[in-house]
């Protein structure tokens, strides 16, 4: 049973005035804290922090801790944060993307199906980076070439994913006229009146 809002409206309609929009609380503080925490950790470790420094390791631990927290929260968390609100579904994701290209506005209160796939991908990649990073520091795997190569390969994949994630947020926000960035900042999605049925 899918309970999240999926509504369609014709693309030709005028943009509703702000008064006709309702702002709905969708992301709880834990989701937002984890999101910006991970974003900050990735940004720091990818840019200013020196590789093989203890700061790099510490930030890696923090990132993994944040993702682990989010995974537990995906089981016992609030309605829109639970995995059941955004199950991985490649067919639905493709349908969502082709809908976006044709300018069809589909508003999802949780992650949209394409965003959901990206979220799972990012979590898996971050866990992979954490595990390989940990192995690089462990004596048992010290100096093993493949571990380091895997860590670096995952980093390239992570950067590509982040780029795609940002592009997705921009496109979806423009087409559906729901500011997704605001949703991650104050937790609210502003949905046009009559456009959603929960």
């Amino acid at each position: 049973m899918r309970r999240e809002a999926i509504t369609e409206t014709g693309g030709g309609a005028d943009a509703p005035a702000p008064a006709d929009r309702r702002s709905i609380l969708v992301w709880d503080p834990l989701v937002r804290l984890v999101h910006w925490g991970v974003a900050g950790a990735v940004l720091l470790n990818a840019t200013v922090i020196e590789e093989e420094s203890s700061a790099h390791e510490l930030i890696g631990y923090i990132a993994v801790g944040l993702v682990a927290t989010r995974l537990v929260w995906g089981v016992i968390g609030t309605h829109h944060a639970r995995f059941s609100a955004f199950p991985p579904n490649p067919v639905a994701a493709l349908r969502h993307i082709s809908g976006l290209i044709r300018g069809r506005r589909k508003v999802h209160l949780s992650h949209n199906p394409a965003g959901a796939l990206m979220v799972y991908n990012l979590w898996a990649t971050l866990i992979g980076m954490g595990v390989t990073g940990y192995m690089m520091g462990a004596r048992a795997y010290f100096g093993m070439e493949w571990v380091e190569e895997l860590h670096e390969g995952l980093f390239v994949w992570l950067m590509m994913s982040v780029g795609l994630h940002l592009a997705g947020v921009v496109v979806d926000s423009l087409v559906t006229r729901v500011n997704l960035v605001r949703g991650m900042v104050d937790g609210r999605k502003s949905v046009a009146a009559g456009e959603e049925a929960e």
Binding site: D28, P29, L30, R32, L33, V34, G37, Y61, I62, V64, G65, L66, A68, T69, V72
Partner: peptide, 18 residues
Amino acid sequence: RAFLLAAVIVLQAVTAVF
């Protein structure tokens, strides 16, 4: 209250992972 709870959760979880 929700924000405070979320912050403590994150702090504890990160420490636990460490």
